[in-house]
C-alpha cells in the first residue's frame, strides 16, 4: 500500500472519530495529540532521516508559543499574524543557532541542543515582564477566521488535524524526493555524501530549520488553543518525550511515530495520578527500545511502501 493512501485512510478515520465522539475531554486530548504529532513529525525528519539529534525541541515549541502569545496579548496583534511572525522568528533563530551547532556531532550535538533548550526555558522563566515568568501567561485570545471562531472542541479538532495531515504529507513528499535520498546518505555515510555533491552542513542546518518550523507552529497553536501557557510545559523532560516518541515509533517511520506520539500524549493525560512515574517509564522505554528493538515500531508498518 502506498504511504499516501494509508495517510488518507488515517485522515478519514480521525475525521470520522471526531464527528462521532462528543466528549469534549477526549477531543481536547486528541487535539493536543495532533500538536505532538506535528512536533514529532518535524523531529523525525531531523533525527530519523538526517540522523541528527536534538534535545532542545521543547524550547522551540516554547518560542513559538510565547512569541505569538506575547505579540497577541501585549501588543494586540492579530493572532494569525502573531502565529506567522512567531513561526518565522523562531525558524530564523533555529537557522542561526543551527549553523554553529550542527558542526558538532553525536553526543556533542546532543549536549549543545540540550543547552539551547535550557537557554530558551530559562529566558522564558526569567523575563517576567513579558512572559509572566513561572506563573505563566494568561488571556491569550481564541483563534477566529473571518468571524468563524474556533470556539468548540470539534472545530479546533478538525482544523488542527487537517493541518497535521498536510504537514505529514509534505514530509513524506520531501523524503521521497532527491532531498530525502540526500538525507539518508548524510545519516549513514556522511563522507560519501560530499562526493555526490551534497553540501552536508547546509543540508543539516536546513532540515534542523524545518523541524524548528514544525515545532514552533505547534507551539503557537498550542498557546491559542489553551489560552494559557507556562514554562513548565516546555522543559527538558518534554524535549526528551519528543525523542522518545520518535525512537519508539521507529526513526524514519512516519506512521510508527504518528501512533507513538498520539498514544504517549494521551496516556499521561488519562493516568494523571501516575505523573511522577512517567520519566521512569520513558527512560525504561528508551533503554529497552535501544537494546531490543532498535527499529521501534517501524517493523509493524513495513507493508506501507
Amino acid at each position: 500500500m502506498s504511504q499516501k493512501i494509508f495517510l488518507l485512510i488515517l485522515f478519514v478515520v480521525i475525521m470520522v472519530f471526531g464527528f462521532f465522539v462528543k466528549n469534549p475531554f477526549i477531543l481536547n486530548m486528541m487535539s493536543l495529540a495532533a500538536l505532538s504529532v506535528i512536533v514529532v513529525t518535524g523531529l523525525n525528519l531531523l533525527l530519523g532521516f538526517a540522523g541528527q539529534i536534538s534535545l532542545g525541541h521543547a524550547g522551540f515549541v516554547a518560542m513559538g508559543a510565547y512569541i505569538s502569545a506575547v505579540f497577541s496579548v501585549k501588543f494586540n496583534i492579530n493572532p494569525w499574524v502573531a502565529i506567522v511572525l512567531a513561526v518565522f522568528i523562531t525558524s530564523l533563530f533555529g537557522a542561526v543557532i543551527g549553523y554553529p551547532t550542527l558542526k558538532l556531532k553525536s553526543h556533542y550535538l546532543a549536549m549543545a541542543t540540550l543547552a539551547i533548550g535550557e537557554i530558551i526555558h530559562s529566558v522564558v522563566n526569567n523575563y517576567v515582564d513579558l512572559t509572566g515568568g513561572p506563573q505563566g501567561l494568561t488571556g491569550i485570545p481564541m483563534l477566529s477566521f473571518f468571524g468563524f471562531s474556533f470556539d468548540s472542541e470539534i472545530k479546533f479538532y478538525i482544523f488542527v488535524w487537517t493541518l497535521t495531515f498536510l504537514l505529514i504529507l509534505m514530509s513524506i513528499n520531501l523524503v521521497n524526493s532527491r532531498f530525502g535520498r540526500a538525507y539518508k546518505a548524510i545519516k549513514s555515510k556522511e563522507n560519501a555524501a560530499y562526493a555526490f555533491g551534497i553540501n552536508v552542513h547546509f543540508y543539516k542546518v536546513f532540515i534542523f530549520t524545518v523541524s524548528v518550523f514544525y515545532a514552533s507552529l505547534a507551539g503557537a497553536l498550542y498557546a491559542f488553543y489553551l489560552g494559557f501557557i507556562s514554562p513548565s510545559s516546555f522543559g527538558l523532560i518534554q524535549s526528551i518525550d519528543y525523542v522518545v516518541m520518535v525512537v519508539i515509533g521507529g526513526m524514519g517511520s512516519f506512521f510508527g511515530v504518528f501512533f507513538t506520539s498520539v498514544i504517549l500524549t494521551i496516556l499521561p493525560n488519562i493516568l494523571t495520578s501516575l505523573e511522577d512515574y512517567w520519566p521512569i517509564a520513558n527512560g525504561l522505554l528508551l533503554i529497552l527500545a535501544m537494546m531490543f528493538m532498535p527499529n521501534g515500531l517501524k517493523g509493524l508498518f513495513k507493508w506501507i511502501k
Partner: peptide, 24 residues
C-alpha cells in the same frame, strides 16, 4: 559506501542529485 536504506536504483539516483534542478 552504498546507503543501506535505499535500494540499488535509489542509490544510483543519489549520484544524479546535482543534475536535478527541483528545489525544496
Amino acid at each position: 559506501q552504498l546507503i543501506n536504506d535505499l535500494n540499488v536504483l535509489e542509490n544510483v539516483m543519489l549520484g544524479y542529485h546535482i543534475n536535478m534542478k527541483s528545489n525544496v
